[in-house]
Simulated scan of single mutants.
Amino acid sequence: MKKIILLTLLFVSSIGLNAQTKNNKEASANFQGLKIVFQLTSADTLIHQNLMNQLKNYWSVAPDTQFEVVCHSAGLNMLLKNTCVIQDDIKMYADKGVSFVACEFSMKKKNVTKDQLVAGSSTVTSGVLEIAKKQQEGWSYIKL
């Protein structure tokens, strides 16, 4: 009797897993070719953590999506070694292809050098112009 119950549970579980895998594949196909640029201007670490949660969710259903996070003004804090609370997450997503970029104008204003940025990040001359360029290239824009 125990074997029958165990086999039944295993069978039901496998059906659920197969349905979930099928749903994930269908969802992924629905999001092919997406490109999203995020604008971050907040120093609030809760917003930074929320962004990582959002990326985790997006990545789970649309792993082929291109993402770029543009940090300028107070948002630059997310990419500074001494203020960043999500350095491991940034490195992990950067390794998966997500771009995290710091505005060089904001860096200059705050006397920040490139060596003060977290691993996995890079720079652009102007955060706002980078976002405008991405939109011109067909990227969707999300303000954080």
Rank of each mutant, 00 (worst) to 15 (best):
V101E: 02
N50I: 01
M107C: 06
V69S: 02
K114V: 15
E104S: 12
F67V: 04
H48D: 07
S121K: 10
M52H: 07
G97M: 03
T125W: 13
Q54C: 01
V101Q: 00
M78T: 02
K133G: 08
L51E: 01
E68C: 02
Q20V: 07
N111K: 08
K143I: 09
S99H: 14
K22V: 08
W59V: 03
S126N: 10
L17E: 05
S126D: 12
G120T: 05
V101R: 03
T113H: 12
Y141F: 15
L34S: 09
N24H: 11
M78E: 01
T123L: 05
G97P: 08
Q87L: 04
L76G: 01
A19C: 11
A29N: 12
K81R: 10
T8P: 01
E104C: 01
G75Y: 04
N18G: 15
N23Y: 13
T113C: 07
N50E: 04
V69I: 09
K143V: 04
K133T: 15
L40M: 09
V37M: 08
A74I: 08
I15T: 04
S73V: 03
V37F: 11
T8R: 11
M78V: 03
S106E: 03
M92F: 14
A119S: 15
K91A: 03
L51F: 05
L129M: 13
S99P: 06
I131A: 13
N57M: 06
A94Y: 04
A43K: 12
S106R: 05
D89H: 13
Q49V: 06
Y58C: 07
K134C: 07
H48T: 04
V85K: 15
S42D: 06
Q87S: 11
S14I: 09
K91E: 09
G127P: 06
L144T: 14
C71Q: 12
K133L: 15
T41A: 05
Q39W: 00
G127K: 10
K2A: 13
K96I: 07
Q20M: 13
T41I: 06
M52F: 02
Y141G: 07
I4A: 12
E68M: 06
A119D: 15
T125I: 14
I4P: 00
Q87K: 15
Q39V: 07
T125S: 15
I131G: 12
T65H: 03
Y58L: 13
G16L: 14
H72E: 07
K134I: 05
K109F: 10
T123Q: 03
Q49N: 11
S73R: 11
V61W: 00
F67W: 05
A102H: 06
A102V: 05
A19P: 07
N53P: 00
L40C: 11
E130M: 13
A43V: 03
F38C: 02
A94E: 04
I36T: 10
L10E: 12
I4D: 06
L10P: 11
G16Q: 14
I142H: 08
I86H: 07
F38I: 11
I4F: 03
T41M: 06
A29S: 15
G16W: 13
L7A: 11
L55Y: 08
D64W: 00
V61F: 08
N30W: 07
A119T: 15
D115M: 00
L46C: 00
T65S: 08
E137N: 11
Q87G: 04
